[in-house]
Design a protein around this nucleic acid. Structure first.
Length: 283
DNA sequence: ACAGGATCCTGGGGGC
DNA sequence: TGCCCCCAGGATCCTG
């Protein structure tokens, strides 16, 4: 579910609620998540104080005193929230951490594509992020390097945008919305991009992500921010999930195809491109 | 090296 | 009500 704007919203919500707090009791559920949980982490976390909370791509990083880092990925349906201890525990809650102000930090994830990992020190965190091979945050991308990366591949733009090694944080929603913003067809091959088109796409990605952050991300079904509030950007979708509905610019029906294994939504008129005539499987 | 497909998991919605 | 199929904000492993 959560892409960069949603993860950023969770981090911003949790910052005032967590920084300076000490974790008290830790309770971990029985079901496995995407990465194995080690029992020893429970005692390492108990008594640890949260020094900072940050985001890198779609990863949430909790910096603890004693040098540990708790790394959280929300997968498709993950929720990381603080709540009153008295709040009823929802189904699919996999971690509950007491806080020294009497509240609780909870991790809930219906589909269990998310993960919780405790890393021992800064070196282990560096190693973890190196292995994840994360590309730059969108606003740190050098336009020339971005253009070179695009033209070095025969993949469709949609596939490149979803590749966390190229740019960190973009997922299915914001890839489609960015391509619409840039007026580029999702099936265009990176190889044929001209410098001004690459730059237009990069600007579109940044613009769309910033708009989405301002609206606290998008809630389609599961997503909530760190305080439990839903996002609002889904009200501003121009193509994502609007199959068959009229394009907001030209009224042509929005199309949906499969691309890079994901549902892809676009306006065949506004995102028409002379170089986009590659066959695309209808779905 | 690269691209595409299958896979992990649960739940909701639509059609019959 | 039940059943079956398709769909879902992601990452990773396997194949060709």
């Amino acid at each position: 579910m959560p892409e960069l704007p949603e993860v950023e919203t969770v981090v911003r919500d949790l910052r005032p609620a967590l920084v300076g707090r000490t974790l008290t009791a830790i309770r971990r559920g029985r079901k496995a998540l995407r990465r194995p949980w080690k029992k020893a982490w429970e005692s390492l976390l108990t008594g640890a104080r949260v020094e900072a909370i940050r985001r890198r791509g779609k990863w949430i990083l909790l910096d603890l005193d004693r040098g540990h880092h708790l790394v959280v990925h929300l997968g498709m349906t993950g929720q990381l929230t603080t709540t009153e201890t008295s709040a009823a525990e929802q189904t699919h809650t996999h971690l509950v951490a007491g806080l020294d102000d009497g509240r609780q930090l909870r991790f809930r994830d219906t589909r269990r594509f998310g993960s919780l990992t405790l890393l021992a020190d800064a070196a282990a965190l560096d190693n973890f992020l190196v292995r994840a091979d994360l590309g730059p945050e969108p606003w740190d991308l050098d336009p020339r390097a971005w253009h070179e990366r695009l033209t070095a591949t025969g993949r469709a733009l949609k596939a490149v945008l979803l590749d966390q090694r190229v740019v960190a944080g973009v997922g299915n929603i914001y890839a489609d919305e960015s391509l619409f913003e840039a007026g580029l067809h999702p099936a265009v091959r990176g190889r044929v991009m001209r410098p001004e088109e690459s730059e237009r796409l990069l600007r579109a990605v940044v613009t769309v992500l910033e708009r989405a952050i301002a609206r606290r991300g998008s809630t389609i079904r599961d997503y909530v921010g760190g305080s439990g509030l839903r996002g609002g950007y889904q009200e501003e979708f121009r193509v994502y999930g609007r199959t068959g509905a009229p394009c907001v610019r030209c009224q042509a029906p929005v199309l949906r195809v499969q691309l890079a294994g994901r549902s892809t939504h676009y306006c065949p008129s506004c995102q028409l491109s002379a170089i986009s005539d590659q066959p695309v499987k209808k779905s």
